[in-house]
Design a protein around this nucleic acid. Structure first.
Lengths: 231, 231
DNA sequence: ACAGCTCAAAAGTATGACGATTTGGTTTCC
DNA sequence: GGAAACCAAATCGTCATACTTTTGAGCTGT
């Protein structure tokens, strides 16, 4: 999953620094400066910069240097960029954006899943809904989180749309972030649990409309809750 | 927008070849082989490969080589990956995926735009709707396409959600692809034009529900049409 | 003030050397 | 004969260095 080697380590330093705004838009870095600052060779710096360039976080120009691009050009769907922004000063903006994205995508994915899910997918959703209920009753937040992530990822995957499926990890990151930063009730709400059960049942029954509606209620609720917490 | 220099040229060769499946999943390349095949140095090959690695199209391992990753790991939201897939053998699958994504996202974006659009945005939407009507009547497909792309990009941008905004280029690529590959009626349908007008009016009037509904009709229609064309 | 020229700074590319790691075969020891 | 330990080759990873190309800024002369 991660980028390997020294360029990866450099990325772990530069990426978060840029994503958080610590290195602001328009800032100019020089390759040589980075070599010294991190004690690595030209090769390593260049490869790391190339990757950042691929994410549109920076652009490298001769005679000028490596300039941090305006935020509007960043590849906001890149999983690493999302992770970096979630970890830094941009956290709330990123959570809001992702919240709206979830409201748009997850209901549609649930509807598609009701039509396209395999038998295995349906079985898994059923058992995840059960485990979700159990860990919620036990107030076991860690286990609950894991199952919640699995649940949403499974729905997205079961939709049969590769692009939706890829948002599984991103949604996972959102849920993790929400839990880590205590933007969640300490005990999952019974109402939300019931809705997950409903989504699973509707998908198993092939009822697209109900799956979509129940999922919409879940993600819209999560977004509303988020907006309250963040003001 | 593009990656510069020799690594960029290499990317333009390798990326499409991998995205189209010409170089299949699991295939193994050696750096030295690529140097010879393209007549460039290690530096260039390594940087190109790093970028592909950032897109999760390949993984590089010692003593093994550069292996093409399974499609399920690819960064399907990366604009370059999308473009490469649209240009190659994966075109229909990619168009289908993007079609569903549009059905999920664009109505939500229209609803948000009705609330958040700036005065400039609203003005621009109004005039784009007019120009759309004009170029459609004139059966000027090139101009129509340009305005259509602008229209959808403007709605996405006006939503105020950076992630939606970023899908503007992608939607543009879809519309372009659809026109290029003659997956579109030679004269835009008057019904679709009226719907664009409706979206613009609803957003200008701040009517989120109607903006969402009209946009949903547009993109759902486009998806249905696509499914008919592709069987 | 303006146009053009010159120069130097920075990234881009090439190359040789060495290090690190993984794989797969080979040897060795029960 | 089989299993474990070992070794060697293949390949990427990193470093150091030299050369090339682009381009911005300042200088120069009108």
């Amino acid at each position: 999953m991660e980028i390997q080697g020294l360029p990866g380590r450099l990325l772990d330093e530069l990426g978060p620094a840029i994503a958080s705004g610590e290195i602001p838009e328009g800032a100019v870095l020089r390759g040589e400066e980075l070599e010294e600052r991190f004690g690595v060779s030209r090769t390593v710096v260049r490869e790391a910069v190339r990757i950042l360039e691929g994410m549109r976080l920076v652009a490298s120009r001769r005679r000028v240097g490596i300039t941090v691009q305006p935020r509007s050009l960043w590849d906001v769907f890149d999983p690493l960029v999302i992770r970096w922004r979630l970890a830094g000063a941009d956290r709330s903006a990123q959570l809001r954006s992702l919240g709206s994205l979830r409201v748009a995508v997850e209901p549609a994915a649930a509807a598609l899943a009701a039509v396209h899910a395999s038998d295995d997918d349906r079985r898994e959703l059923g058992s995840l809904a059960v485990e979700l209920t159990v860990s919620a009753r036990a107030a076991d937040l860690t286990t609950f989180l894991r199952h919640d992530i699995d649940f949403h990822a499974t729905v997205l995957r079961a939709s049969g749309n590769e692009m939706f499926a890829h948002l599984g990890d991103t949604v996972g990151a959102v849920l993790t972030g929400r839990t880590e930063y205590h933007l969640m009730p300490h005990q999952p709400e019974p109402y939300a649990i019931r809705l997950h059960r409903e989504v699973a049942d509707a998908i198993c029954a092939g009822d697209a409309a109900q799956a979509e509606q129940a999922m919409r209620t879940i993600v819209a609720g999560a977004l509303e809750e988020l907006n309250q917490q963040l003001g």
